[in-house]
Nucleic acid binder design. Structure first.
Length: 293
DNA sequence: TACCAGGAGAGCG
DNA sequence: CGCTCTCATGGT
């Protein structure tokens, strides 16, 4: 069967770190390659000298959708220049220079992070995998590849019962996901309109959804809409800011929030991803620590 | 076993 | 404003 194949020319791109850094939850490693589904399209990606090799199940004439998702046309050096040049930030950048932000679909990103509340990343992946397998549309895959599914559209989830969602192990998050799906499907909540709003207004709008507070809203603004000023503060970032920037006094959440919003510049959310990845992957001090992920 | 996880929201002082 | 509790589930 005819596949699509393309070579993305890009430097400063750590594909593995980017796809496995807790911003997207559907990518699966297969040796040196990664397979996933973007919109309704199965994709296989592999880092090669000079860039990224991409394969799809069906031939493609235009690959802009993939460059958009991977944000491969972003000049990282320009982003780095806006980061504060303090020791913690330099260490986080040195630990993973090719880490990037993706540009994901807003609906998938919103639901994914609604499901992330008090869950470990491995568990978030499991819930989403179950949700897609049971309720997402089957997509074309190359011969020999395991079956794959698109992320369920709002309309598909809106038609389900709360019990069906709970069967995907999402627990107390189920009614919130269902309510969001029904509001989006009814056209009462317009995810596309958020693109036209300034950051603060888009954030307020997202937080009107039950189960979406400031942290989840910031994740969606950053990972789906490209508001690079959005700075999600989760338990890892709290730990990072506390240990790296306030080492000898306990800083209350409020103070950490203010620091996060003011210290990291116009691409603060990007800086946040470097700190997040740094904290999750660095060797635990003193040994005997747990491994993240 | 006990604790915790890329939280949110309500109740209370 | 602050703190505390609950929600559901499973990894370590």
């Amino acid at each position: 069967m005819a596949m699509g194949e393309h070579m993305l020319t890009v430097r400063d791109y750590d594909l593995a770190a980017t796809l496995d850094s807790g911003q997207a939850f559907r990518w699966q490693r297969q040796g040196t390659a990664w397979t996933g589904v973007i919109d309704r399209c199965w994709v296989r990606l592999e880092a090669v000298p000079g860039g990224i090799r991409a394969q799809t199940a069906v031939p493609m004439t235009d690959w802009q959708w993939l460059r958009d998702y991977l944000q491969s046309e972003v000049d990282l050096a320009t982003v780095w220049r806006t980061f504060p040049a303090d020791p913690p930030m330099l260490a986080a950048m040195a630990a993973c220079p090719g880490l990037r932000l993706l540009r994901q679909d807003p609906w998938e990103c919103l639901v994914s992070f609604m499901l992330s509340a008090t869950k470990q990343i491995v568990q978030i992946r499991q819930i989403i995998a179950r949700l897609c397998e049971r309720h997402g549309t089957v997509v074309a895959v190359p011969g020999g590849a395991p079956p794959a599914h698109a992320f369920p559209k709002a309309g598909q989830l809106a038609a389900l019962s709360e019990a069906q969602l709970r069967d995907c192990k999402m627990g107390f998050r189920a009614p919130n996901v269902l309510a969001a799906a029904r509001r989006v499907e009814a056209g009462e909540f317009d995810l596309e309109r958020l693109r036209t709003l300034p950051l603060a207004a888009a954030r307020e709008e997202l937080m009107r959804l039950a189960g979406v507070g400031g942290k989840i809203a910031d994740c969606v603004l950053l990972f789906a809409y490209g508001f690079n000023g959005a700075f999600p503060v989760d338990v890892w970032i709290k730990k990072a800011l506390q240990e790296l920037y306030f080492p000898r006094r306990r800083a209350p959440d409020k103070r950490l929030q203010r620091f996060a919003a003011s210290h990291f510049g116009e691409h603060g959310g990007y800086a946040q991803q470097y700190l997040f990845h740094y904290m999750r992957t660095r060797k635990p001090p003193g040994g005997g620590g747990r491994k993240a992920g």
